[in-house]
Design a protein around this nucleic acid. Sequence first.
DNA 1: GCCCAGGTGGGTA
DNA 2: TACCCACATGGG
Length: 207
Amino acid sequence: MLCAHYGPQDWWPADSPFEVVVGAILTQNTAWSNVVKAIAALKKARRLTVASMRAIGDDELADLIRPAGTFRVKARRLRAMVDWLWAESSGDVSQALSGDLDTVRQRLLAIHGVGPETADSILLYAGEHRSFVVDAYTRRILRRHRMINGGESYDTLRTMMMASVGPDLEIYREYHALLVQLAKQHCRVRARCTGCPLELLPHDEAL
DNA sequence: GCCCAGGTGGGTA
DNA sequence: TACCCACATGGG
């Protein structure tokens, strides 16, 4: 039995794939609590759809997402994203993300404002792609346990994690929750992760 | 008042 | 290629 079974299901709370996409951009270098406020404002203004967000100006969009910080920058990035989604699939997020992982990932990375972490978050939580997200938590934990020296590139860490964990959508999605569980319950992931970084985490210092 | 957060793009050497 | 910096709000 995988410890993932006990993990919370709310690392990326969202009511729709598009909300995941928007959150992925809004959370860049930003506390999630601020993203929640911005998303609530978008919902209240009925602008949390590709078509309706596309229909407003940058100033209005920036004003709505102000609580998330760097709002002018993020308004431009959301604009680039909705334009792409519209061109790609008339705003159907699932359809836009369908297809071969590496191909879709490259297409996402070509969009202004979408870097590797944002792309992987979208692929994993808005799509059905088994693409591991390397975020600040992942780096912090691996470094704390001296499993990396800190200089590795994003792609190096992603490849390392995916090779050791194995292709498992649910484990990828629950990874951060898993770390919490590992810390609290001293459990080990053995079924499919023998030898992986999770296995090596000292139970009292996972976070 | 200060520091940081679930990054990315642009500029410079 | 390899750094350095702007972006900006809200919470501890």
